[in-house]
Design a protein around this nucleic acid. Structure first.
Lengths: 198, 198
DNA sequence: TTCCAATGCGAGCGATCACTCGTGTTCTGT
DNA sequence: ACAGAACACGAGTGATCGCTCGCATTGGAA
């Protein structure tokens, strides 16, 4: 009901700080166990100040999801330059996965939202929107590659591919950097194997 | 410290009731959000009674995990009768997956423990043991099929296969029975694609 | 300078939840 | 029959956590 106040520059900075802190705390403990006071403390701010900018804990996730969706879109725009659909499958997979892994490593909180199973059900809307955006993008590419396939099948394939990706995200980002490329290779093998005809 | 009491038959029944109730509640709300009082109520019993039989919430998960591990072992013993390792890959995958899906559908709480990301970290020991048991079993079969492969690689492959399985479990058990076989087919395609050489 | 909105604080409220404890009831062995 | 152990109850305790509220400070527009 109360119209949100006209933010000053200081406020904008605070919001960014708070989102940074939230990302770290979510990454450390997961969304469910994360406490808003911990987020506030991490941001060097009092609980009251946090709620000056975010209606509730959910709104923090919402803000983060928005951020990440933007980062993903940017990363993919950079990667999906041209006739991606005509690339050999392994290259296609590699080109799609790369940016997502990067976004993930650069933003520790991403996985906590993307693979969240511990969110208050229908309140997990932001997480599901992020997921859906990824599925949409994959379905898009698949459609370009196989225009004759039924849309339903392509979508199902996209969902499965996204699940597979999500299931290995944790392992990949948690791995020591030395092992990381090996897990990434494994993820690519899995996706190529799944997506290749026959 | 206190040696556990000598259980009467009534007590055995209560423990089973409580585990049944816990499975349902975990399935409904996930482990983290499940309340012990809800479990007690669901079992038609007071909170105090619950704690007569289980030291804490974690012990409930422990008890359930034990149950499920037993069910899995049985199901797999039935499926892994003979020279499974020499079967064609699609058949092998199908034979391994079938029992796991069945156990899952028969025990609603299984997935909540198996794919739990919302457990208090290192307290998720029972869940991780279940996971490890599955990985071990897969690694075993893979070793029989490819005795010349390095054990490290086989284990990594087993881990990935388990992750892939887990990531689609939710979708499969949540699907309406009519769609279920389609998702299972998709899971099999994914695993066969991943495990087939080249 | 003046005034109001925006920002900031932090003690603490209300609700939730894992778990306890005092007490009473039922079983089992002798 | 009796004693002691196992079973059962459920109000209550202590801790946690999301969030609020009263009040102080800062910033910007006039």
């Amino acid at each position: 009901m109360s119209p949100q106040p006209r933010r000053q520059e200081r406020g904008q900075r605070r919001m960014a700080q708070l989102l940074d802190a939230a990302a770290e705390v979510f990454a450390d403990t997961g969304y469910a166990k994360a406490t808003t006071n911990a987020v506030a403390t991490r941001a060097g701010v009092s609980p009251g100040t946090l709620y000056q900018f975010f209606r509730n804990k959910e709104a923090l996730a919402e803000g983060l999801a928005e951020r990440y969706q933007q980062a993903l879109t940017d990363a993919h725009r950079r990667a999906f330059d041209s006739g991606l659909a005509s690339l050999p499958l392994p290259d296609l997979v590699s080109r799609m996965i790369g940016p997502m892994i990067e976004v993930n490593i650069a933003n520790p909180g991403f996985k906590a939202l993307f693979t969240a199973t511990d969110m208050p059900e229908h309140l997990g809307a932001p997480a599901r929107r992020m997921h859906a955006a990824v599925v949409d993008r994959i379905a898009e590419v698949l459609t370009a590659r196989s225009p004759d396939q039924p849309a339903t099948d392509l979508r199902r394939t996209a969902v499965v591919a996204t699940q597979i990706f999500g299931s290995l995200l944790g392992t990949i980002v948690a791995a020591k950097p030395a092992d990381r490329s090996q897990w990434i290779a494994e993820l690519e093998r899995a996706l190529v194997g799944y997506l290749s005809p026959g």
